[in-house]
Amino acid sequence: MGIYLPIAEISVNIFVLLAMGAAVGFLSGMFGVGGGFLITPLLIFYNIPPAIAVATGANQVIASSVSGVLSHMKRGTLDFKLGGVLLAGGIVGSTGGIYVFAFLRRLGQLDLFISLLYVVLLGTVGGLMLVESVNALRATRSGAAPVLKKSGQHNWIHRLPLKMRFRASKLFVSVIPVLGLGAGIGFLSSIMGVGGGFIMVPALIYLLKVPTNVVIGTSLFQIIFTSAYTTLVHATTNQTVDVVLAFLLMAGGVAGAQYGAKAGQRLRGEQLRALLALLVLAVAIRLAIDLFVTPPNLYSLSAAGLN
């Protein structure tokens, strides 16, 4: 059944979008990520103009994050204070990202930049995660005691000034890296249409040493607001948010997410991380191939004077 998307201005199949939403929702629920990094490339593969895919992706991420945060609130695995500081940085980063986005779009380099960012970031994060989780899997198999993180173990980040206490995360750390991380994620959110969970989660775990159980809830919490802000700014400056498209993805997504979360509970942490790493790498490779393979059409048209 076809449906006409009012903003993207094309007809698409309603069931393809629902299925796409459900599949990504399932994975996002399973791995505790927003799923934006999958939705946006999938939409682009489905011929949705990248600018609309990004803005609508950000919109869709809100729904899956709200859904996820609610279950984390119930379990008490959410650090509101840490989330708030991350958010403050996120707003700044997102604002900057919107300007870069509009600038690149005028230049005709937006699509390339989006693809390059995806390839580099997904490739790096996926690669690192894969190495780490495979090592962890090997360690458990060989029977060695897993290396537990000691609370006294500090790195350079913990020597920065302006320290702040985050009770729920049992953390006493400078706000500078927290704000910086938030800003970086905000920037990516507005350019890539992602919530940034796939970067936020490892960064919180490995850089800030936030306990793993609070990481996902806190990350989702701040993603809701960063994505909401990104959606709002895209809607007002670029008019690229397609609510019909977003709603179809969300409807599939929230359903899939709850089943995914259930499925995720049956897998062990390092298995989950290894699978997520493989998934992230697969998307990166698929996008990288498109960059290098001779495109079927060397020429492209776009409306002139577009901001």
Partner: peptide
């Protein structure tokens, strides 16, 4: 668009919750 997303997320959780 944001309200719709939040509402969908909340409703989705209510309808499909599995925990």
């Amino acid at each position: 668009a944001i309200s719709l997303a939040m509402l969908t997320g909340w409703l989705g959780r209510l309808i499909f919750r599995r925990d």
